[in-house]
Design a protein around this nucleic acid. Structure first.
Lengths: 254, 254
DNA sequence: CGCCATGTTGACCTGGATCAAGTAAGGTGG
DNA sequence: CCACCTTACTTGATCCAGGTCAACATGGCG
């Protein structure tokens, strides 16, 4: 299954960005850091950019850095010998990549779109982590959020129908892209899907044909409109959310 | 769906256990603590015991404590309005319950067997957490492990066949129960299943009938033997692991 | 003993997988 | 500017793993 990605291993060292001007400054693992702590991180950070489809790290291989997604989308996925693959994480800007304390990951990390990471060599980062509660507290919080997201995803994988899965995915992407601004009900929401049909299938535990058919069905019923292949317009977000199978009330996060 | 559990709300204050004699002392969230730190925890800890089937916390309801499983098994699960439920966590001794920084959980916590928790009221625990890197480091490590486990589980839910799911579950339980002592190949492994067929189905995203049929099939083929309903004997663990669909090589954790 | 919870097994059905043709939109080179 | 690929996507026909519905077995336990 390790095929297809013939892209040359680009890793452009992007023009350095000063932390203060960083677009993910307020959400990433460094978001609680003060000026002094940021300067320390600044000294060990560097940027890497990957082309779409390029592999950032193979499962089990050594990963010498950890870091944050600055721009673009990446996926974490697991593949069985016979090629069945399941996406287990979708990394959007500000998400953290890598595991302090381990020098490898048990899943493949792949660039979905062109992506830029703010990287730290693992050892120096671990040292900084141990010395800076602002970082470790934030990392714990982010990891707990990832765990909650993984568990919501488990319900989708284990118990939802194909249609509910698609509606759930669109809802999740919309929520993350728009940071939950669709409180303005009645307004159409535009989702720029960062995923191919195949990637959506790997996310949802479906085949790409089923994804395509369900999207067609939602379109036929007027719940969504397509603008090109990848842009989806949701005229009535609550109506789409009704199709996810979730109850809209319980589980208030306080 | 919130039916069935008519058990009276038992919460026996167990005879206090001194931390030094605690059976989960070396694996729980407190495992890195020194004597002094343990004494501080000792002052805010208390024990609670729940009967099998009893609900420890409902999704979305306030949960005033966090804690460790000392003895017994509990589950985390999510239920849809129409009753479909998916287990999203299985808590065995030493596992941590609850989420610092939030006063509710987005899933139900239910005692599977009789279970004893070592509880801390949330606020004092958070204070201790902030003051004690030994605790927060361990909690981060445990949360990262939970996240890896959740992601392995996602592959099971999304891509594995019913037979592979059952084999995976048995392998996971065996691994956790026996703490990986089955290196002694050729020896039979005895698994005392803490789960009913229905709970196994909720774990694996199957129906209980399918679970029952697959277990019968594995028995018929000699891969497992049953001793009563809940005790499973695996004469040849590697043979069972072959049925999980996992490759036995890659993903070495280093 | 009879009850109720748990588990097994059978017969049938169906949602989504599989297999197989298409279509549509870039991209490239002549 | 067009002919030709290639990659992404759509749609149809058929199949089958696992769900559903239903009957029955087993085994604690009052």
């Amino acid at each position: 299954m390790r095929t297809g990605t013939k892209a040359v291993s680009i890793s452009l060292s992007t023009t350095d960005i000063r932390c203060a001007e960083c677009p993910i400054r307020h959400r990433a693992v460094c978001s609680n850091c003060n000026e002094e702590e940021l300067q320390q991180l600044d000294q060990i950070k560097y940027y890497r950019t990957y082309a779409p489809g390029q592999t950032i790290a193979w499962a089990g291989d050594e990963l010498t850095f950890v870091g944050s997604v600055v721009r673009g989308v990446a996926s974490l996925s697991q593949t069985m010998e016979d090629g069945r693959t399941q996406m287990v994480g979708l990394l959007l800007p500000s998400d953290f990549v890598g595991r302090p304390g381990r020098n490898s990951l048990p899943y493949d990390v792949t660039a979905v779109s062109e992506i830029t990471l703010c990287c730290f060599r693992r050892k120096p980062f671990e040292k900084q982590l141990a010395a800076t509660p602002h970082i470790s507290e934030r990392l714990l919080e982010m990891t707990l959020d990832d765990l909650d997201a993984a568990r919501e995803w488990m319900l989708i994988l284990g118990r939802k129908t194909a249609r509910e899965k698609i509606a759930s995915l669109l809802t999740i992407i919309a929520r993350r892209e728009k940071s939950m601004e669709f409180a303005a009900q009645g307004d159409a929401v535009i989702i720029d899907l960062p995923l191919t049909r195949e990637a959506m299938a790997d996310y949802l535990g479906l085949t790409l044909e089923t994804v395509s058919r369900q999207i067609s069905a939602l379109k036929r019923e007027g719940l969504i409109q397509l603008d090109g292949k990848r842009r989806i317009i949701v005229p009535d977000m609550p109506a789409l959310m009704d199709e996810t199978g979730d109850d809209m009330d319980g589980g208030m996060i306080t």
